[in-house]
Design a protein around this nucleic acid. Sequence first.
RNA 1: GGGGUUGUAGCGCAAUUGGUUAGAGCAUCGCCCUGUCACGGCGAAGGUUGCGGGUUCGAGUCCCGUCAAUCCCGCCA
Length: 599
Amino acid sequence: MSFSSIYRTHHCNELGSEHLGQSVRLSGWVNSSRNLGGLIFIDLRDREGITQLFIDPELSPELAAKAKEIREEWVLAVAGTVRARPPEMINSSRKTGAIELELTELEILNRAKAMPYHLEDPSSSEDLRLKYRYLDMRRSGLLDNLRLRHKVSKIIRDVFDANGFIEVETPILSKSTPEGARDYLVPSRVHPGCFYALPQAPQQYKQLLMVGGAEKYFQIARCFRDEDLRADRQPEFTQVDLEMSFVEQDQIIDIVEQLLSAVMENVLNIEVPRPFRRMTWKEAMCKYGSDKPDLRFALELQDISDIFKHSQFKAFSSALEQGGVIMALKAEGQAQNCSRKMLDQFTETARLYGAKGLVWLKVEVDMSLSGSAAKFIGDEERAELLRQLQANGGDLILIVADTWKVACESLGRVRIQLAEFAGLIREKEFNFLWVTEFPLLEWDEDNQRFAAVHHPFTSPMDEDRQLLQSKPGEVRAKAYDIVLNGVELGGGSIRIHNPELQAQMFNCLGISDQEAQLLFGHILEAFSFGAPPHGGLAIGLDRLVMLLSGAKSIRDVIAFPKTTKASCLMSNSPSVVNPTQLAELGLRLATPAQNPEDS
RNA sequence: GGGGUUGUAGCGCAAUUGGUUAGAGCAUCGCCCUGUCACGGCGAAGGUUGCGGGUUCGAGUCCCGUCAAUCCCGCCA
C-alpha cells in the first residue's frame, strides 16, 4: 500500500531506526504539542499512528515561530530528516518511539477551533460524541471498529464468492406490508397519496430471485424498522442476507458455519469447532429459559412440578391447577454469597418478566431448607427436591411457579443475572449455537388470532403438517436461529414453495384469499410459475461486529448512529421540511411539526 | 406508552445533605521554560446550576412538570 503523494512519503506509524538520515514528508493532525521554550515537540497523528516532530528554535527560528501558534488537531504537512532520539529518551510504548523527525519544512494545511471536548477522554458524554462523531472517530477507537467491520464484510464476501453466490442489490423504495415491524414510509410525488416503504428486510425480493433462478443469492443489505430502540437496535441496520434454492436446512447451516468460522479465524484468529452445537427450541426453553441461550455457563432449569403435585403451598398448587409448571434453578454453593438484597434483585427480575414471584431456598449443611417458603415444604417433598436437583449443603435453589412460558422465561432471565453475579460466565469464549424447530405460529392475545413466529412464508416441518388445522400452536417450523453468547445473531427458514400449503398457511393466519392477493399477490403469482424449494437466513452484521469488538452497543460499530429517540445529533435529522416540499407530495400535516432541534 | 439512571464553566467533576461571593483540574488566552511525550511553572478570563413552575426568610440541593441522553419493559414477522 502506498501513501505517497505531494503530502507525504510515509505514514505516521512507519518510521524507525532503519530510516535514520532519510528525508521524508508526513501529513496529519496535531495530537499534542510541547513547547519547552528552547525545544519544540509535536506529536503528528494520522490513522496509522503517531510520529514525534522536533524543532530546535536556535537552528530554525522561522519554523519555531510557526510552531508556536500550533494547537491541537491542526492539520500539518511537514518535511524533515529522521534522526535517532537520545537513548534515554526512547518512548517504548510507541512503534515510532526510537526516532523523531527533525523538521526542515512546516506547512499549516488547516487550523482547527478548540475541541468541544477532550477527544481521548473515554468518559465524555455520549451525546457530545454523537454530535461530533467525526471528532470521536479520530481517537476513540471507533475507527478501529469500522476497520474490523470492513474486514468482516470482506471475508463474508469472499466466502460467498468462493461458494458461487451472487451479490444482488434489491430496492430500498419498497412496498409496505402489514406483518411485522412498523414501516418507514416514503411518500410518492408521482402517485399522490401513495407511499413506498423502506424494507424491513429484503425478504420477498430474495425469494423472487430464487423464482428467477439465481439459486444462490447474498446481499449486505440495509434494513429499516420504525420501532423503539435499544443498545442493540437501530432504526436502520445491516443484515447479511442469503437465500439458496434446492436446499434444506443443513445446507443453509453449513454455509453460515463456513461464514462465521472464517470470520472468527481471520478476524480474531480463533478456530471455532464445527459443526456448531444444535438444540431444539423446546430444549432451549426448558433447560435455559430462552430461545437464545448463553451456553458459556451451565446452570440448567429443571421442571419440578411432579414433586409438588400435592403441595400445601398456594403459589405452587394454584400454578399447577391452572395448567402451569414449577421450574427450579440450582446454584451450586451460592447460598452464602447471595445476600437478601441480591435475592430481592433476582425476584425483581423474575417479576419484570411476568412471574408473580420468586421462591428461594437455601440448603443448609444438615440438608434442611431455609428461606421464604421453606415452611411450606414437607419432608418428602424436600427429600425428592434435593434428590432431583442433586443439591448439597450451601446450594441455592430458585423457583418460579407459573405458566410454562412465564416460568421458563423469567427463570431464564434470573439464570443470566445469577451467572453474571456469581462470575460463572467464561467471558473469552465464543459459543455458537443453532436453535431449531421453532414453533410456526403463536397465539396473539391482542388480535385473537394466530400470528407467524418467523414470517408467513415459513414452511412447517413435514411431520407436523397434519396438525395445521387441528393444533396450529403445536406445529413446528423449518426455522432456525444462530445464537452467539446469548445474542440472536440471525435467523432463517425453509420457505413454502407449494401454493396449496401457502394458502393453508394464510388460512391459519386468518388472512383471506382476497387479502392475500392484495398484500402478497405478486409473490403468490411468482410462486405459481414454478418456484424451486428454497430457504435462507439473515445475520445481523452490526450485532456480529459488536460481539467481535467487545462493544456494549451497536452504536459503537456504526459510523453515524442514531439516538434512542431515532434522531441524529450530528445532522439534526429528522427535521421539518419546507411547505412546498409537502405540497409537491400532496401532504398536509395533521399535527403541527415538532422539530427536535427547536426543543 | 411505562419504569430506572443522569443533567452544575467549553469538557469531565466538586459544593460539608436547605445557608455568605457555586470551587479546583483539563481546555482557552497571556507570559516564562533546551529532552518532552497527558511536559512543567506563573497569571487571566470563563456560570440564568437543562428548561418551567412551586415550597421556603433563603433552593445547585426539597416537590411537581417538562426536555435531552442512556438502560430496561412493551414493541421489534
